[in-house]
Design a protein around this nucleic acid. Sequence first.
RNA 1: GCCAACGUAGCUCAACGGUAGAGCUCUGGUUUUGUAAACCAGGGGUUAUCGGUUCGAAUCCGAUCGUUGGCUCCA
Length: 638
Amino acid sequence: MVKVELPDGSVISADDGCTALNIAEKIGPKLAKAAVAAKINGKLADLSTPITSDVKIEIITEKDPLAIEIMRHSCAHIMAEAICSIWPEAKLVYGPIVADGFYYDIDLEKSITPEDFAKIEDKMAEIAKADVPFKRIELPRQQALERVKNDKYKTDNVNRAQGDVMSFYLHGDGFEDLCRGPHIPSTSKAGAFKIMSVAGAYWHGDAKEKMLQRVYGTAWANKKQLEDYLNRLEEAKRRDHRIIGKQMDLFSFHEEGPGFAFLHPKGMILWNSIIDYWRQVHNCYGYSEIKTPIMLNESLWHRSGHWDNYKENMYFTTVDEVTYAVKPMNCPGGLLVYKSRQHSYREFPMKVAELGLVHRYEASGQMHGLIRVRQFTQDDAHIFCRPDQIQDEIKGVIDLVFEIYKTFGFNDFHIELSTKPEKHIGSDEIWETATNSLIGALDSKGIKYQVNEGDGAFYGPKIDFHIADCLQRSWQLGTIQLDFSMPDRFGLVYTDSDNTEKTPVMIHRAILGSLERFLGILIEHFAGAFPLWLAPEQVRLLSISEKTQDYSNEVLGKLKDAGIRATIDSAADKIGAKIAKAHADHLPYMLVIGEKEQQEQMVNVRTRGAKDTKTVTVDELISAFKKKIGERSLSLEI
RNA sequence: GCCAACGUAGCUCAACGGUAGAGCUCUGGUUUUGUAAACCAGGGGUUAUCGGUUCGAAUCCGAUCGUUGGCUCCA
């Protein structure tokens, strides 16, 4: 007999060698039915795991968040079995879970296409219905290698796996797969699943290796949850900045310039509103602003190291036998400005900003709406300072990042620290000092961050600020990069208090990152329903009939004189149609104007998202609008 | 760049080897309207481009360009 301690602290005794499932059955038949896996001494395990000593046990049921992960993982196996039964020559590589689902990498000559999904799903349903148990067998490493010797992928997986014991899972018609587990007890517990997509993926994530087929699926505890998820995906697609950009006439792309955004008048209003705010807040933080050319002599880029590290991604042009590089970064130009005169330590920290237009040749498959483009504007700045000023300056930039993101209502971003990459300039000592400065600044502010080893820029480590788009893909916005190398390469100096010349430290930083990307993220963040200060069209006047056209125009004139972006819908539509159209265009405010309003010299205000309307005078409205715009309020309530 | 899919009117889509259509938008007209879409008519397409197969191609095949989803990359 063994003693089994349950989560509530109670202890039951059970037969030596009984399974976790037996324990669940002992506790109650309902629990046994809902059980998916078990936690034995805090470690996830199959329900079929035999209990041979005194343990603490916790039964994982369908309600536990861990259960869905196990179900998804098991779904990957069931999908693998389905694919192998349809195409027996398929070789399985690796099948983990991801957010909301799972995938399996498969080596198969035949291309799996979306037309095959139904066939795979049908087969999976068949396997699930058959209610076949997942059986675990454990083998020592050597025997495991022997078992998979004809399969180069599984052999590779064994070689990469840790530990001396390898486990295999068997289910269905002779199907087995090397896998750490745990799994659901039987295929019938797989939940509700759906094949979502198929894409190429390099083996080991290495572009030099073979391209495998990665089949993605999603799985949920039940049909309802699956449907909710699919609905959420549809909803998310409606937030897509590419779709909203078209609907709201903000920007466009053309074959004549792939990766080069064309901003339309309404897009420019957003752009300029962002920049106006940006300039104001940078001014408060003590930044000055410069502008440097977008094309500079190639030799400059040799000196900066960009040519060595990134020439494949740079644009070049030759005129009069002189080769110019279109700038991929603003820093070398900024360094020339620095060098144009002498500098004293008294000027430090010297914060020089530049809204710099840069071009980077991105491979065709990388482009994505405004978010990944070949031409973009960086809200760049370079801070020149003494080594002892580094931490304070980095902290200052972090403060600025938080302040700006807050203004736009971005709360859901995460922070990453990237360290020395293989391709780098500068000594190890310099890298260590620089990295520690960044860590020191983050820690002193109590900020949580993730470390990306080897992901830094070639000239220094960096802190990045990431945010997710409508499909939960994470993108970098802001970045803070410490650079001890570039000032040295360019021979930058300042005169210190002891009257000697020293090399300054340089901090590269961007807050919005790429203005194009920021605009894309901003559109998705608000789903096109912008706060008043950003809205390209702030208020639309809807006249009930032609009878009140003159009064409507008078109101329009007053709003425009007050600097409000107002338009008028004087079409021969009924008021309901005008309201519907204004809603579709995400108007913050609509003013309904009819004979009643004309008589009272008022306007009837409909606020986006509010049910009730309000009748106010135009002057009241204007002062309310001005207040909201001045405060950059995110709320429309007046 | 790699794997796969897609490209039809300004937008969203239909037609899937046999005369390119609808809704919205746009233009003209009727209606003069009271809070989420009145009615009638009209305009608008060398079906991304180029080549091939066929009596006949939006439809089948190939190439190119672009887009989408992943992979790789992202100074």
